[in-house]
Design a protein around this nucleic acid. Sequence first.
DNA 1: ATAAAAACTGCACCGTAAGTACAGTACTAA
DNA 2: TTAGTACTGTACTTACGGTGCAGTTTTTAT
Lengths: 204, 204
Amino acid sequence: MAKGSDTRNRILDIAQDAVLAKGFDATSIEEIVAGADITKSGFFYHFRDKNTLAEALIDRHVKTEDELFDGLAARSSALTDDPLQKILIFLKLLAELLENMPEGHPGCIVASAVYQDRLFSNAVHAANRRAVLGWRKRFREMFAMAEANYPLHDPVEIDDLADMVSAVIEGGLVMARGLNEPDLTARQILLLRSYVKLLFQPRV
Amino acid sequence: MAKGSDTRNRILDIAQDAVLAKGFDATSIEEIVAGADITKSGFFYHFRDKNTLAEALIDRHVKTEDELFDGLAARSSALTDDPLQKILIFLKLLAELLENMPEGHPGCIVASAVYQDRLFSNAVHAANRRAVLGWRKRFREMFAMAEANYPLHDPVEIDDLADMVSAVIEGGLVMARGLNEPDLTARQILLLRSYVKLLFQPRV
DNA sequence: ATAAAAACTGCACCGTAAGTACAGTACTAA
DNA sequence: TTAGTACTGTACTTACGGTGCAGTTTTTAT
């Protein structure tokens, strides 16, 4: 028999696919347990309720995404010492990554949670908040390094700039989904990259 | 007794408030009819099902937003003949408008619908798609006028630029909601404005 | 004034899904 | 061998979306 945490992960895998395809509410527990080959009782052994599942889903999703960002950051750091180039390479790699996902980026569980207030407990919202604040911190540091070495050609707040990365990704995903144009998000990232370039880069 | 379309609008009003506050799924028909002071049968007289309600909600929301955009476009057109300045003023007005909404922008019903695939019928998705394509067209025209008069300082697609307006708004709303920072969206619009400026404006 | 259409009310009922309760069972590590 | 972990099975409750339909009030056109 499975190792316990095995089953838990299997539940999360199946739930994640279903949630990204149909939305959280549209995904029934009974459908999840059927897919995971367990019983309803088994599900409730692992998760107190659907909220707890959402929480776990967000936490796991954020963790995966963080590792992905870490990977891109490491690759861009390896390619240059210049803090501005680091950002530009990072954004390029990010765009490429989004482009190469055949089905488009799976879409962000976080955003989907943002638009469902009652259903979700405080714990879910807290998980969500942690995620977004984590991104802010990450990108803030990248832009602060660039600012220290290059003049800003327009007076903008570094914090806002950091948030813009997340906003463009999230907004891009919403649009991509709404229009069924999977690579829209990647193109939006490249526009953001263009902005960063114009904002920091010395002029010819 | 009310005039029929009165009741329908009352249902939409109450539904809209509830949906923006709690999400669509979390808003029960029973709660809507209680608020609108009608019976369940009365609700189903006006709307075939919950899908039809969503559709009506999106259509009405889009209409309101279109009028709002029209108003801002008219005001900025009145202030200048220069196509670039028109965009910059438009974005400034938009940011101000978002800032002055005490509770922050109500959040976009469209985005909320994007993340719930099964629940919604094709009609709902079509309404959504129409909305997003409408925005694309609107902003595309504005940017095309600017491009005809100013050099682009970075080779980007006008279509993508048009989508960026929507993406930044949508993404801004997601972030604002997740972090409970109502004016985040306005600041993101101003960043986009800064990009447009750097992208088109002749350098000193 | 009247008839027809529109805008409802009231009530009974069905299916689905979340969640509860709890007794029983199989596997697993000390 | 025993205690905990990881479940199964069954039965039940509640909430919600939705149906069906007969009856009632209100509005509108003639």
